[in-house]
């Protein structure tokens, strides 16, 4: 029963939460740059407007691909909040991301193609860290399990066993949330050299779908961050929310202080951090427990 409530809450509240976080993100970024910034509800105004525009589709398959992308990413969150298998969640997340890659590449626009290639590269960069994080959750004592509903009932917060995994996961979150310095495929900021990268050829409505999917995804990713903190003590949920928000703020700070890097730097840095932080932590876990 409680999992049904969690699912419904996720389905209904996640877009509002994601949009609100997005709006606060833009506000905080503006303040960091000495500007006033748009209203906090701006992302909702944007999506409403996008849905109101004329439909232009470059390729008919694109709308289908974008809808599939959205459906899969939402389903990932549903699985997670239902307390299902975390490994399954992340596999599905990557499957969903490939639909975005398809949607970006069906149009044959050079900018979109370049963005798509970079998206694939980003996936290559963050996938090891994601898989290792799942493995970390499994290796953590006491009960070796992938099941989220069991992982939230551990006697102590998992971050105590998995600090390295936490570092690696937060690091790749910068890529997943499309924050500078790792926003190669598409950026939230004005121009970049590939215009809007993978989303360049999305018409207004498809772009709205993309934005809403991003909100769902953001909530899911922050929920995974919270999973590191949650234990069988109800008070830990408050701590988890605070940590998730702190991580979110850290991403904004990184976004506003770092310049975009080239793809080879992205790949090298991410893999080195993943290997050092998550890899070493994994070795310790395997040898000790």
């Amino acid at each position: 029963m409680s999992s049904v409530i969690a699912i419904v809450c996720f389905l209904v509240l996640a877009p509002f939460l994601g949009g609100l976080l997005d709006g606060l993100d833009r506000k905080i970024s503006a303040r960091m740059q000495g500007r006033i910034g748009p209203p906090v509800l701006q992302p909702f105004y944007d999506v409403r407007k996008l849905f109101n525009k004329q439909t232009i589709v470059v390729n008919k398959a694109q709308t289908f691909l974008m809808l599939t992308y959205m459906a899969v990413q939402i389903f990932v969150g549903v699985l997670f909040f239902a307390g299902s298998d975390i490994l399954m969640c992340f596999f599905l997340l990557s499957t969903g991301a490939t639909f975005l890659v398809f949607a970006g590449s069906v149009t044959h626009s050079p900018l979109s193609t370049l963005g798509t290639n970079r998206e694939l590269l980003q996936m290559m960069a963050y996938e090891p860290a994601v898989l290792l994080t799942c493995l970390g959750f499994y290796l953590a004592p006491p009960d070796h399990t992938f099941s989220v509903s069991e992982l939230i009932q551990t006697p102590v917060s998992l971050i105590l066993y998995l600090p390295g995994f936490f570092v690696a996961f937060v690091f790749i979150l910068t890529i997943k949330m499309r924050k500078s310095p790792f926003d190669l495929a598409t950026a939230h900021h004005a121009h970049q050299e590939v215009v809007k990268g993978i989303t360049t050829e999305l018409g207004a409505k498809n772009f709205a779908i993309y934005t809403i999917t991003e909100w769902y995804e953001k909530v899911f990713l922050l929920a995974v961050v919270a999973l590191f903190i949650v234990n069988d003590n109800p008070l830990s949920y408050i701590a988890a929310v605070i940590v998730a928000l702190a991580v979110w703020f850290l991403e904004i700070l990184i976004d506003n202080t770092c310049a975009r890097v080239k793809w080879d730097v992205l790949l090298k840095v991410t893999w080195v951090v993943t290997l050092l932080a998550a890899g070493v932590n994994m070795l310790i876990l395997m040898l000790v427990f």
Partner: peptide, 10 residues
């Protein structure tokens, strides 16, 4: 709420 987008389709 003005965004300087580079993308005509949006």
């Amino acid at each position: 709420g003005i965004v300087n987008t580079g993308d005509p389709m949006q």
